[in-house]
Amino acid sequence: MIVFVRFNSSHGFPVEVDSDTSIFQLKEVVAKRQGVPADQLRVIFAGKELRNDWTVQNCDLDQQSIVHIVQRPWRKGQEMNATGGDDPRNAAGGCEREPQSLTRVDLSSSVLPGDSVGLAVILHTDSRKDSPPAGSPAGRSIYNSFYVYCKGPCQRVQPGKLRVQCSTCRQATLTLTQGPSCWDDVLIPNRMSGECQSPHCPGTSAEFFFKCGAHPTSDKETSVALHLIATNSRNITCITCTDVRSPVLVFQCNSRHVICLDCFHLYCVTRLNDRQFVHDPQLGYSLPCVAGCPNSLIKELHHFRILGEEQYNRYQQYGAEECVLQMGGVLCPRPGCGAGLLPEPDQRKVTCEGGNGLGCGFAFCRECKEAYHEGECSAVFEASGTTTQAYRVDERAAEQARWEAASKETIKKTTKPCPRCHVPVEKNGGCMHMKCPQPQCRLEWCWNCGCEWNRVCMGDHWFDV
């Protein structure tokens, strides 16, 4: 396979590697080409510095992935760790964990309700045991953590790749202090920090972006993250068709209702045909949960890209028209025109101005929308079919299609509260000796007794199943 190397943020060049090629071997190839010592090179990928003893497969490097290699003399205490030698983080029983690669970060837990604080980093599902597709590297999971809308060759929703760059020099040479644990960490600028490894760059702020994971991409090709779309790892039924499908869209209502993408497309087109989208002054033209839940309008309007190009163009047109109407304007009634106009409040005669090729020149009556006339309008008909009709959803289907309910059931079956801080902690095999993952707590306690870890627990039921 081919990976592209950008040395000291210059133009990239291809390097041929195998899945079992080590990072140090990659350094040696680059060092020979650039005429520099291999031990002064640092390989940066997806916000993480890659260790010498890791392989291309370990690092989730795919065909035509772009890695950054910078030349920086080692500072005291760094060289041993980078070589894969006596790194205290690798000691058996050590409590410190390697910062998780962005290629394996899962933010789907952050669609849980606000009262489930902490689960994004504490609760991990076991539903990723799908067998890898044919042709994928051994052991590589097909679980997708992110979804994007690819405006490039795909023109559809695709699995996405999370990447990070330095907000100062805009190069992907920043190593994160810690990985993101929720969508806010990724979507809110300057929320996460790190250290830029580019020479002479003092940058410390992280800037995240997404790429389409279905095809090789260049540095400049980015895609918009659709953070309401998630892999259906909890096997929730769709609120409309009641099938279990994946991926799904999880509405931001209190129940976190789930809808499959085909039904979401149908829901949007139906509402669009009836012009029953909601115009929100802050958000724009949007839709609420299909069950009509309060405070559930979709905030990231790129989710409506699921409509496809033709329907999305209609959505944008109707949204612009609705904006004009909300501002007190009118639409030209001549067939084939429909231009938005903003006449004076007491102006009865409205002319669709033909300047700049935008208007048709038609003069019409503001009251009856017919060709302009003197005197009273002959008839004014009330528009028919403008009443909002509820999208029919079966109550039982709505009850079963809740992301929140599956989460709470998982928590109930696989977790116990920490005796000190009461945060839910998952036990997935292993011994009875637990350690609270909350940095402010870190209590060592017994899963069996529910009390602080002691010699009695150690001698009596340390390794009970």
Rank of each mutant, 00 (worst) to 15 (best):
L297V: 08
C268R: 00
L307Q: 01
R275H: 04
I411G: 08
Y143I: 08
G459H: 15
G328V: 02
E207V: 06
F45K: 08
G135Q: 11
D460L: 15
G85H: 13
C365F: 02
A390V: 11
N190A: 08
V15P: 00
V186G: 01
P202V: 09
G319K: 07
V121G: 15
S384H: 10
R163W: 12
C446K: 01
G357K: 14
A291D: 05
K412Y: 11
N295K: 09
E370H: 05
N90F: 14
A172N: 14
L287D: 00
L301F: 08
S116Y: 06
A92P: 12
Y147Q: 02
C436K: 01
E221V: 07
Q316E: 11
T231R: 11
N90L: 13
R314D: 02
K299W: 05
K416R: 07
S296F: 03
Q276P: 00
H200S: 14
L61V: 06
L112E: 14
G319T: 07
R348V: 07
A38L: 07
A120M: 06
D184Y: 04
T351C: 11
G359A: 10
E321S: 10
F24A: 14
W453V: 03
V330C: 07
A406W: 09
M458H: 12
I411E: 12
T177Q: 13
Q71S: 07
E409A: 08
G329C: 03
S167N: 10
K413H: 15
Q276R: 08
Q316C: 11
K427V: 08
H227F: 11
G93L: 11
R42Y: 04
R442N: 09
N313V: 08
N356D: 13
T351M: 07
S233T: 15
W445A: 02
V56H: 01
Q326V: 06
H373C: 03
N190H: 12
T173G: 08
A390Y: 12
Q71P: 05
H257L: 01
G114K: 14
L112R: 13
P294L: 05
C166L: 00
A92Y: 11
V269Q: 05
A225E: 04
Q197S: 14
A230W: 06
I66V: 15
G430M: 15
P288A: 08
V244Y: 05
T175M: 11
A379N: 12
H279E: 10
V121R: 15
F264Q: 00
D274L: 06
D60Q: 15
P247E: 05
